[in-house]
Nucleic acid binder design. Structure first.
Lengths: 316, 316
DNA sequence: TCAAAACGATGAAGTTTCCTTATCGATCCG
DNA sequence: CGGATCGATAAGGAAACTTCATCGTTTTGA
């Protein structure tokens, strides 16, 4: 197999050409690239001589791409884009052990942090940097390796692995339910203030599927962050329709209790996402595998024997 | 949107680096690239300074890729490959109107050529160049735009459109069946010599599905090319299990007749394939669309009311 | 309508990058 | 131990790239 790539056009000319084609003007391209108009003109000319055909048709004092030019623009863009991406990735190798994980503040605080102890034991050489945000940053450009997001798993171009579904169920602090023990709450939760997740608005669904009418299902405190929602519930301010995944350690240590044995599977789930190439780095791969393993462990122990509420079935 | 691609490493260094990484030796890379060993060393060094980290670990007097180097090798390869591919494609714009179509001699002679008249009328500005071969040339490297191949449609990375299925049925020259008219042949074709397609060996299937035993089902002339097979049948030397697609014009002009109203759908079908990017060229797109349209027309008129033999069903 | 402004082309000169030559030190092999 | 092979490096020269200065054309606006 001959791996000689043949004659190739000069790389810098690609940049000039790309800018010129995009801006439709040699002068503006020169400005953007901090070069002179003459340089762009020369670059384009060198490409045109290289290909033996014009890439721009000079109409009046402006320029317009030819068919061939339009084709090559695509090539130039992808080539530069690919090279730039690969180049950016190289920085990661300068910080051995460090892996940047982006996720929501809620997931970071309620699921990741409680597993730090375990992580330190399992993969001591890995130093995760948690980048907590509710914006699903474009991991192409941001310097982050792994994202953990709630969603539908449709992130094109990214490697995506489903960690677990998101089951929700009413939760509250144990002290709030005097008399009635866990799992013995009245179906309409009468007397309990409701705490709301601003984004999800799930209480209506919950009552509808329970066959219960509650007029003030919208009243109560609102939170934009599911973590704060749980904290508020722990503080005893009411019942939250909380995620079993996020509330896991609160249920373990008893700071929250479930009001019903049933739960509701939401449409979204938690996913780990990653630019495939990043998994080439050993540390990324190690943390990635560890996360997936932990998720598996969690799912098995926390989702076993779940009773779906209403028509929602399945448990995977 | 900032379309500045940031600092990029020099392109020529990528070639040197790629060769060095592939061959595991600066000296051999230099030889391959027609440069001095010193040049390769400089190129690699410039990349290493660019990235601020080594790409090779110098062990003894040989070199070995680091993790970062392995990652960047991937980037370099893909970048060069992509650029080389796009560069190669540019030549096509220098031959306006010409489109190279690669297909088997049989398909070219029996299906394409009979439609030349029509083609000249429909798309007079297109000059197809037929490259007839039984090797499915890698259209990435060969200078060809469109391929028409018999197969399963699994050509990864290529745009693939199914033209039509491949139905076969016994055919022979009309003079050969004295007395018995068309479609009235004895089920075992007794007395008729059999002509074989070397690759397909379909007669056994045919007789099995017909519920007929014929001992000498393997005897007779063999052809490596389905076109020659049909020519031999036209010449009256026996019955061929011929493709309805290839035999179409022979059936139209009466030089071949069908011996049964039934036909057998083979596992493979005829596909048009193309590197997606090539369709950017207007002339390629025009010929591509024309081919697909002609295939559709053919399929409708020739495959209407086909009676499948045996358990084979469907007609799509 | 005409002058000024804006744009791209081009030749020459200057600058940077790149490659080679020559040579060195280290390593592998017999 | 000695020759052969490999990669590193300094210095010089070649090639490529960019700028400078200038020209011709087209568009704009007074």
């Amino acid at each position: 197999m001959d791996k000689n790539f043949g004659r190739l056009p000069p790389l810098n000319a690609l940049r000039g050409f790309e800018a010129a084609a995009r801006l439709g003007s040699f002068s503006r391209a020169a400005e953007e690239q901090n070069m002179t108009q003459s340089a762009i003109s020369h670059q384009v000319k060198s490409l045109e001589e290289f290909f033996g055909q014009p890439l721009f048709s000079r109409v009046g004092r402006s320029v317009e791409l030819t068919d061939a030019g339009g084709d090559f623009l695509e090539t130039a863009r992808r080539t530069l884009e690919h090279l730039a991406r690969g180049t950016r990735r190289m920085d990661a190798y300068l910080k051995p052990g460090q892996v940047v994980v982006a996720t929501s503040p809620a997931f970071a605080g309620k699921w990741l942090i409680p597993r730090y102890e375990q992580m330190r034991r399992d993969i001591p050489l890995i130093e995760p940097w948690i980048y907590a945000t509710n914006e699903q940053a474009d991991s192409e450009y941001a310097e982050l390796e792994i994202g953990i997001w709630r969603g539908h798993g449709d992130w094109p171009g990214l490697k995506t692995v489903k960690l677990f579904d998101d089951w929700i169920t009413p939760l509250c602090a144990p002290g709030l339910l005097q008399g009635a023990g866990p799992n013995g709450a009245p179906a309409d939760l009468s007397g309990l203030p409701l705490l709301h997740d601003e984004v999800r608005e799930d209480w209506h669904d919950w009552f509808r599927l329970s066959g219960v009418e509650r007029q003030d299902a919208s009243a109560g405190y609102n939170f934009s962050d599911s973590g704060l929602l749980l904290d508020c519930a722990v503080a005893g301010h009411g019942a939250a329709l909380g995620s079993l995944a996020l509330a896991d350690h609160h249920l373990e240590d008893g700071s929250l209790i479930r009001l019903f044995p049933t739960a509701l599977k939401t449409e979204e789930a938690y996913y780990a996402v990653c630019v495939e190439e990043y998994l080439r780095r050993a540390e990324v791969r190690i943390l990635w595998d560890w996360l997936i393993g932990q998720a598996e462990t969690f799912r098995v122990h926390a989702y076993a024997g779940l009773s779906p509420l209403g028509e929602h079935g399945g448990s995977g």
